[in-house]
Deep mutational scan, measured.
Amino acid sequence: SELMNSSKLIRMLEEDGWRLVRVTGSAHHFKHPKKPGLVTVPHPKKDLPIGTVKSIQKSAGL
């Protein structure tokens, strides 16, 4: 199965306009000026399962 580095996923979010608002432990929480909701990324993780990545991307509207 495909894995993604959390840094790469965070870069994709930031390029889309998401900004880090809070860190709780290894959970990084992002908000967007125009899009609704809060997106949480486990970080640092070298090997996020593709299912997790897809669900984060979906929440972020990517």
Results as ranks from 00 to 15, higher is better:
Pro44Asp: 03
Pro44Val: 04
Leu20Trp: 04
Pro44Glu: 03
Ser26Arg: 13
Ser26His: 10
Thr40Val: 11
Ser1Cys: 14
Arg22Leu: 11
Ser55Leu: 12
Lys46Glu: 15
Gly25His: 15
Glu2Ser: 10
Leu20Ala: 07
Ser1Gly: 14
Pro44Tyr: 04
Pro33Thr: 07
Thr40Arg: 14
Lys58Gly: 06
Val23Phe: 06
Gly17Arg: 03
Pro33Asp: 11
Arg22Ser: 10
Pro33Ala: 09
Gly37Tyr: 04
Ala27Cys: 13
Asp16Trp: 04
Ala60Gly: 04
Val39Met: 04
Ala60Leu: 04
Val23His: 06
Val39Gln: 03
Val23Leu: 06
Lys8Asp: 15
Leu62Glu: 03
Ser59Gly: 07
Val23Tyr: 07
Val53Glu: 02
Ala27Met: 14
Pro33Ser: 08
Leu20Phe: 04
Ser59Trp: 06
Phe30Gly: 00
His28Glu: 04
Gly51Leu: 11
Ser26Asp: 14
Pro44Arg: 04
Pro42Lys: 04
Ser55Tyr: 09
Val53Gln: 05
Gly61Thr: 03
Gly17Leu: 03
His28Tyr: 11
Arg19Gln: 09
Lys35Trp: 03
Pro33Ile: 06
Ser26Glu: 14
Lys54His: 08
Lys31His: 08
Arg22Cys: 11
Lys58Asp: 12
Ala27Gly: 07
Glu2Arg: 06
His43Asp: 04
Leu38Asp: 07
Leu48Val: 07
Pro36Tyr: 09
Ser6His: 03
Ser59Arg: 13
Lys8Thr: 15
Gly61Leu: 04
Lys35Gln: 03
Gly25Asp: 14
Ser7Val: 09
Lys8Cys: 15
Leu13Phe: 01
Lys54Glu: 14
Lys46Ala: 15
Lys31Arg: 14
Lys54Asp: 09
Ser7Ala: 14
Thr52Ala: 07
Ser59Ile: 13
Arg11His: 11
Lys58Ala: 13
Ile50Trp: 15
Lys8Phe: 15
Pro42Phe: 05
Ile50Thr: 12
Arg19Ile: 12
Gln57Val: 15
Pro44Thr: 05
Ser59Gln: 15
Gly37Leu: 04
Ile50Asn: 09
Lys8Arg: 14
Gln57Phe: 15
Leu20Met: 07
Ala27Thr: 10
Lys34Ala: 10
Ile56Ser: 01
Pro49Val: 04
Arg19Pro: 00
Lys58Met: 12
Lys31Gln: 12
Thr40Met: 13
Gly25Tyr: 14
Thr40Pro: 04
Leu62Lys: 03
Arg22Gln: 09
Asp47Trp: 13
Met4Tyr: 10
Ile10Asn: 02
Val39Cys: 04
His43Thr: 03
Asp16Pro: 00
Lys46Phe: 14
Ala60Thr: 03
Arg11Trp: 10
Lys35Tyr: 03
Met12Glu: 07
Trp18Ser: 00
Lys45Ala: 07
Thr24Met: 09
Val21Phe: 14
Ile56Gln: 02
Pro44Leu: 04
Ser59His: 11
Gly37Trp: 05
Gly25Thr: 14
Met4His: 08
Ser6Thr: 04
Arg22Pro: 01
Ser1Asp: 15
Glu15Trp: 07
Pro49Asn: 08
Glu2Pro: 09
His43Trp: 04
Leu62Gly: 04
Val39Thr: 04
Glu2Cys: 12
Pro44Ala: 04
Ser7Leu: 12
Leu13Ala: 01
Val41Lys: 01
Thr40Asp: 05
Ile50Ser: 12
Leu62Asp: 03
Gly17His: 04
Val23Asn: 06
Ile50Val: 12
Val39Lys: 01
Lys31Ser: 10
Asp16Lys: 04
Leu62Thr: 04
Phe30Ala: 00
Phe30Thr: 00
Arg19Ser: 09
Val39Asp: 00
Ala27Asp: 13
Lys31Phe: 07
Leu62Tyr: 02
Thr52Tyr: 08
Pro36Asp: 08
Val53Ser: 04
Phe30Leu: 05
Ser59Phe: 07
Ile50Tyr: 09
